[in-house]
Amino acid sequence: MHLGPLQSVVIILATAAGIQLTRWLPFLLFPEKKEPPRVILYLGKVLPAAMMGLLVVYCLKDVSWTAAPHGAPELLAILAVVVLHRWKGNVLLSIAGGTALYMLLVQAVFA
């Protein structure tokens, strides 16, 4: 341990406070009893799809596109997820298939 126990507790509490603030903020700004403004209701409708797109990119943020294998394992595995999901429409199968292919690619093919 680099910090003492008391300092460690303080850092952990500060980290937790920062994280939890981001989760509570919208609920504190727009309490249950009041109807939120229309623009917020609009954002609530469009944000889930938008954030799913953002999260996919976020997961790929550390892929290095300029160095070999140029993100090939990620792109191939995502392609597999899309094809499997279009074909069978089974959430678990699509995720398991894509992950298995990705593990195979990074461990054996592009290792």
Binding site: I19, T22, R23, P26, F27, I40, G44, M51, Y58
Partner: peptide, 17 residues
């Protein structure tokens, strides 16, 4: 921590209802 998790603010907005 606030900055790393700022995206969570959008989650709250989406599930207010």
């Amino acid at each position: 921590s606030v900055m790393i998790n700022a995206r969570h603010i959008f989650y709250g907005l989406s599930v207010l209802e």
